[in-house]
Simulated scan of single mutants.
Amino acid sequence: MPQLLSSLSEAFLKALQARQYSPATLSTYAIDLAHLLELVGEADPAGLASHDIRRALATLHARGQQPKTLARTLSAWRSFYHYLARQGFVAANPCLGLRPPKGDRKLPNALSVDEMAKLLEGPAEAFWSLRDQAMFELMYSSGLRRAELIGLDVGDVDLDASEVTVIGKGRKTRIVPVGSQALAALRAWLPRRGQVANDTPALFVGARGGRIGATALRLALNKLAVRHGVTAHVHPHALRHSFASHVLQSSGDLRAVQEMLGHASLSTTQVYTHLDFQHLAQVYDRAHPRARKK
């Protein structure tokens, strides 16, 4: 008996949940599968061909979805069919060989070294300022994603070894160095953390004593930027972008940056080489006598 798309989608999402995918990732998969259901109807997935998937993508593109979003959607559909094939529900994956429309690749929003120094200018003294200083020093020092920072427990940081153990995308674990400024900020925060923390192992806690949330993290960063007079647009991921850009500018070691960022593919890290070239081009324009505009 043919299996319907909706029931198989639910089974796929439950399988991802069992593999401890994050709530945000599960929500994104659910949205992408809902698009597929809307566009092809309550069909048997085994009856769909590549032209059906291509038509569905074209419809989403006509609605104004950006190439980056379409690439993510196609990836979700491809993973869904890969699951169906493993479970024996389909014989072939109609998403294989399809590519979303190309779009302009935007450079990550990275702050300059001077802007980062201004943002993290210390010392912090007030209770929540100590927490914020530790959070954002660590985020910049080790190139952490927002969810990675929020998910840290006290035991994940080894101050003696100057390392932090991070659980990244796909539940992959990596160990990242922690710089001296971040270590100093953590040493200032940890003795004070217990004043507000409830029964939680979370390294960074919010006003109610539980693990800090994404909104509180963003608001704390906004307040820090305003307090220190940083006019550039600052968001949590910009600290990770700044880490990658600055380390690459100093070392030129793309592979090392890839490992520290936890990128599965080197091509993802290579976008920072464009940032690095942009920096070099600006230096050239300012310094070379034949490059200066009259």
Rank of each mutant, 00 (worst) to 15 (best):
L96D: 15
L96M: 13
R99A: 14
K102Q: 15
D104Y: 11
D104I: 13
K106M: 13
L107M: 08
L107I: 12
L107C: 12
P108H: 11
N109P: 01
N109H: 15
V113W: 07
V113D: 07
V113H: 12
D114T: 14
D114S: 14
A117G: 11
L119Q: 07
L119T: 03
L120I: 11
E121L: 13
P123S: 08
P123V: 11
A124E: 10
A124G: 01
A126L: 14
A126K: 15
F127P: 02
W128T: 09
S129Q: 15
L130D: 07
R131A: 04
R131H: 03
D132C: 02
A134N: 05
F136Y: 04
M139F: 03
S141D: 04
S141R: 09
S142M: 03
L144W: 11
L144R: 06
R145F: 07
R146D: 00
A147N: 12
E148S: 05
E148R: 07
L149M: 15
I150Y: 10
I150T: 09
G151R: 09
G151F: 10
D153I: 02
V154L: 15
G155Y: 08
D156G: 13
D156H: 14
L159D: 08
D160F: 09
D160Q: 13
D160N: 09
S162I: 00
E163T: 14
E163C: 07
T165D: 01
V166F: 02
I167A: 01
G168Y: 12
K169R: 03
G170Y: 07
K172A: 05
K172E: 05
T173L: 13
R174F: 07
I175K: 13
I175S: 00
P177Y: 06
P177S: 08
V178D: 00
V178Y: 00
G179F: 01
S180L: 11
A182P: 02
A182K: 08
L183A: 07
A184R: 14
L186W: 04
R187V: 05
W189G: 05
W189Q: 04
P191T: 06
R192F: 09
R193K: 06
Q195N: 05
V196D: 02
A197V: 06
N198M: 10
T200G: 06
A202D: 10
A202S: 10
A202R: 08
L203S: 11
L203I: 10
F204S: 03
F204N: 05
G206R: 04
A207S: 11
G209A: 05
R211M: 01
A214D: 15
A214M: 11
T215L: 13
A216K: 02
L217P: 01
L219R: 15
L219V: 03
A220Q: 01
